[in-house]
Structure formats: structure tokens, C-alpha cells
Design a protein around this nucleic acid. Structure first.
Lengths: 117, 117
DNA sequence: CAGTATCCCCAAGGATACTG
DNA sequence: CAGTATCCTTGGGGATACTG
């Protein structure tokens, strides 16, 4: 049998471009929405699910953990019954808001002018 | 005790969410970089390849056509020899700049403060 | 120069079900 | 409530080669 050479498909991280770096944080599916939902204060898991209806619990969980690991948000277990968990932006996460706001503003402007994909 | 009402922050349907709409435009790989490269004026295909080294011609071509179809940029064949093609932002594309700038600024700030993934 | 043409790949997402 | 556990699909990219 022929030896199967795995092609080198690994993308050499181009170069730490601020643009690319930032997109790595907010580029994931629903990530901007999550950060946006946290703009006015902490939200719980199920609240986020309501904020962003189409997101599945698995994906929400994945994205939250990813954002937590990147230092964008904190996860706090509240000693309530039933237990609840609050997610809140860190100062670092708050720093991302201008970028998200920029996207929201532009999206809003496009919508107002009747932009269609 | 009084109900602690947590205000619903974004009651917007996801399909019409400006955030999501805008991300559909700039969410593609290298898309922000392409738009960013056009910020100061038209660029040619090979210039863009130099601007964004790791991008393959196929992907660059794909993204450019996508952006053209979305009305973000124009493609102009220059009657030179050898032939060259210029890509330039449309007014609509220029509208995206604040969003991109926001991302760039935040990325830059994160980098300055030594942020690592 | 400015792209197409192929082929391939895998990890991000989705669907669904289940649990502490 | 706040998640895991599985399984599966897809299409966005990547590599490489070729052309007008």
C-alpha cells in the first residue's frame, strides 16, 4: 500500500498581526454576540441562551470556556439554590467592546440603508 | 423580596441582528486583512498577496469575489501591459472601516499589554 | 500578472440525548 | 439550572499545479 503522506496543512501563524490576533478572539461563532450580551453586566448561562436563541448548549459552553481561557470573561458559581453561574467580562474583555461596538454600528448602518447580502 | 429583574438586553432576532449580518461580511478568513489593506487606496492582486503573505491565490480570489458580490469592493481591469487588476473599496466597503479599525485598535492594545492567547 | 483547477482535510458547529 | 456526552456533517480553507 502506498504510504500516505500527510500534507502539511498547518497554517504557520502568519505573524502576530493585531488584526489577526483580535479576530482569533472574536472570530468564533456567536462570540461577538456573547460579548455583546455581557456588555451591561453579568449574565447566566440560560440567559445567554435566551439572548442568542439559535446557539446550542454545547457550542455556548465551548465558546464560554474558550473566552474564559483567554481571559475575556470570568465564570462565577453563585451559591444559590438552584445553582447558577454568572459570566462577566473581565477588564480585558471590556477592552474588546469598542471592536464589537464598531461591528454593531456598521451592521446597523448597513441595515438602515437596506443592505442585503 | 422584590423580584430582581434582569433587563433583557438584546431582544433582537438573530437573523436580523446587525452584529451577525456584519460578521457575515467580515467573518471570512483574511477578509478583515483584505479590507484593511485597501484602506489607503486601490491595490492589485499581487500586492494583496504581498500584504497578506500566507494567503493562497485561491483563497484570495475567493474572498475578493465574495466581497465584490457583496458590494464591498470593485474590481477594475487596468488597460496596461501586462494587465493588472485593481481592487478598491466601494462607499459601502468604506463603511466597514470603523469596524475593522476597532478590531485593529483593540488588537494593538492587547498586544501592547502583552496579551497572549 | 492574475488568476483557475483539483484535491483534500479537519476542526468548528449543529442535533440530540443525558446528568449532577 | 448548567452544563456533558456523542455523533455527524459541512464548507471554509489549505497545497499544489496549471493557464490566458
Amino acid at each position: 500500500m502506498a504510504l500516505k503522506i500527510r500534507q502539511n496543512q498547518s497554517p504557520e501563524p502568519p505573524e502576530s498581526c493585531p488584526l489577526t490576533e483580535c479576530m482569533k478572539i472574536i472570530g468564533g461563532a456567536w462570540t461577538p454576540n456573547i460579548i455583546w450580551s455581557l456588555r451591561a453586566g453579568p449574565r447566566r448561562f440560560s440567559e445567554l441562551r435566551v439572548d442568542i436563541p439559535p446557539i446550542s448548549p454545547k457550542v455556548l459552553s465551548t465558546r464560554l470556556r474558550d473566552l474564559e481561557s483567554r481571559g475575556v470573561l470570568t465564570r462565577t458559581i453563585m451559591p444559590t439554590s438552584p445553582p447558577s453561574v454568572e459570566y462577566a467580562l473581565t477588564p480585558l474583555g471590556a477592552r474588546l467592546m469598542p471592536a464589537i461596538e464598531g461591528i454593531v454600528d456598521v451592521g446597523h448602518a448597513l441595515k438602515l440603508q437596506g443592505y442585503k447580502a
